[in-house]
Design a protein around this nucleic acid. Sequence first.
DNA 1: TCCGTTATGGAATTTTAATTCCAATTTCGG
DNA 2: CCGAAATTGGAATTAAAATTCCATAACGGA
Lengths: 276, 276
Amino acid sequence: MIEREPQPETPENVTQTIARLDHVMDTLPKRLRQCAVFTRHHLHLIAVSTVSDMASASGVAPSAYIRFCQAVGFSGYSEMQTLFRAQYTSFRPDYEQRLAQLSPDVSQGSGELLAEFAESGHQSLIGVGNSVANEGLARVASGMAQARIVHLVGLRRAFAVVSNMSYLLGKLDVPAVLHSNIGNLHAGLVAGSGDVMFAITFAPFSEETITQAHAAAERGVTVYGLTDADDCPLFEFAAEVLVVKEHEVAGFRALNASITLTTALSVLVGAQRAKT
Amino acid sequence: MIEREPQPETPENVTQTIARLDHVMDTLPKRLRQCAVFTRHHLHLIAVSTVSDMASASGVAPSAYIRFCQAVGFSGYSEMQTLFRAQYTSFRPDYEQRLAQLSPDVSQGSGELLAEFAESGHQSLIGVGNSVANEGLARVASGMAQARIVHLVGLRRAFAVVSNMSYLLGKLDVPAVLHSNIGNLHAGLVAGSGDVMFAITFAPFSEETITQAHAAAERGVTVYGLTDADDCPLFEFAAEVLVVKEHEVAGFRALNASITLTTALSVLVGAQRAKT
DNA sequence: TCCGTTATGGAATTTTAATTCCAATTTCGG
DNA sequence: CCGAAATTGGAATTAAAATTCCATAACGGA
């Protein structure tokens, strides 16, 4: 028998899996490539689907899908699924330990840490493509597109996210105001009829942000929100609240999901506005 | 046989499930209550776990866990799990459609766009882990850790990135100043001996940022940089320049790589500083 | 304490999913 | 247009998970 390519090693995390996927993509036969293409765009489904689900979604027989898993370096579907499920169960025993040894020896760990954050970013992004947020996104976008002015509110961790939105919306000629609390301008009072507010707050929720959003809502301003927890006070008065789940490393939550979602949102708003 | 309580109806969504959980909580016997308590706090695990997983996590036998599911109104664990999985696969009905339009690339829907950006994020992150920047990262981190004050400079697209660094460094007790150009403060002139500047600029490079960084460098301040192109002017006078390649969608570059890299950097600086 | 009732854990069973195997089909070099 | 090699779908098998059953234990009222 002809010597096969050096047997690929089992991917150990999402990052490696994606890398290998991209790598083998071109070398696979038709059906297996279908699996690769579909899977690449629906990574988040792996954790909650059976082989048959993934196979039929890929337009392929279950046996083919398993062959695909093997081509990517796993022993079968179960092994691959375990890897993608791990992110939800990530109170993994060794996780806290690993991070505990983070501070003792930092110099050695700089590459390691970066890789951890990259991995964490991948995991955050996997969650972003699906779920409820999708549907609400279109509604929020069209609401914002019709606004006279969009008020952006977000403090602390959320500030970077609204900064980015502010930049993007500006570039797209969408009238937007980035509210910082410099100079005590109170967004809730500045906003007027026909305006829309987009407020971002992550747990533990910023009092200031909530207050401003609430004030705006009471003045009849449509408030949209983005948060990372189901018990966010924004739900009480916002017209729509988007939810992202960010993965975290060593207590530092990533921003990948939030930034990606809000970037897409901004572009949607810009596009919708340009049309009118 | 004595009339049992009116048989609870099957919850149809997560909201109803939670409601019923809270409702029956007090009426359940010991073991089943354990299930309720654990499950209430780990709802997200249901979609990706087996009965045995949930049972042992609740400290209970599998059969008990199933009885618990029935007490909540489901026919068994499978039915409950299906409900929780649905939220990840809510667009599953049109799987077949998707399959059809798979190979020719996406037509723009809001969901599709989001998926594009998520994809773009993955690609950016892949680059971050293995690039050359790795090695420089440790040097930049230790340089920043020894600084009296860290000056953060970045405009336009880069502003969101420095905002985030500012937040993180603050949380980590690293003295850092976020320079905006509000009030015409010129970072290059404020920075003094023993300070370090971290400047971020992406192509096309911000004149303002370059000027400020240059001025600082001339005054003897160590300048570190982050950019996305090899011809960045920062290379001329910065002590070290990190490079990230951001992927782009429809002309909008992502920020995933930059944010991930700078987050890791910030944490490294914080950790190193805490040690001394 | 005793008895009837309810609750519990684990073994036995059923159901469903994962994987392997193989015959049929396609692909490609000559 | 033929034959070898690779690829594929589906049937057969194996593995695993879900559910039921039952003997035992715990509980609560007389």
